[in-house]
Design a protein around this nucleic acid. Structure first.
Lengths: 106, 106
DNA sequence: ATCGTTCATCGTAAATATACGATGAATATT
DNA sequence: AATATTCATCGTATATTTACGATGAACGAT
């Protein structure tokens, strides 16, 4: 947000911070858990489980899609959202590498 | 940011998203790496390694301190910043629990 | 006491995030 | 073709983030 000097940082620093940004709202954490644990994938079903309006949930889904945590498959007038495990796994791995680099050394 | 309905979500959802928010800027990722890997702790030294003005770095340090990732110990006119390993470790653990819950199930 | 160093905070400008109602686009059904 | 359903996007209001220069507070040294 706002005049960010992202060119001044490394690719991995930008990538990790971008993933973290996608996780930086409790609604998006909750959406990821819903998609993983409930047998649910449609936007409307997610809205029913969330304390937010449909438009707001849609915005959060867009942000999760932007970083690749979820994919949306069109099924007629519906869209079935599902987790993209490869991206989620990659994010976990890189975040752990960051944490390990921070914690182990010294 | 902005009219966030944080009461509507669980404590852990808010906590994880708060940690993620602290990691959601490449400058803060870089600061954490600097504190871990370089023999550096003073704000001025960090500023010298960053492509940002002193005031901006100070703001990022404040955000990292807010969530407990770093502590600041006063040494005369200087302040020695250091990582708070217990908080960083806790964040890593909870983030991994989130990821594992998302990835393993299903 | 004065001066220099170090860092936080103030003030400000511009961009982004959050939230919602309203509307629009796409498709399935009748 | 008309209708209903589903979801995205528009428009809008407000809050937060990011960035910087300027200033202030705190301390050590002279």
């Amino acid at each position: 947000m706002a005049i960010s000097k992202s060119e001044e940082f490394t690719k991995i620093e930008n990538k990790i911070s971008d993933w973290a940004k996608a996780l930086s709202h409790p609604a998006r954490i909750k959406i990821l858990k819903i998609l993983a644990q409930k047998n649910v994938c449609m936007c409307g079903d997610i809205v029913d489980l969330m304390p937010l309006a449909q438009a707001t949930v849609s915005q959060h889904l867009k942000e999760l899609k932007r970083v690749g945590f979820i994919k949306g498959e069109i099924e007629g007038p519906k869209i079935c959202y599902c987790l993209d495990y490869s991206t989620v796994t990659e994010a976990q791995k890189k975040l752990n590498e960051l944490f390990d680099g921070i914690i182990i050394i010294k």
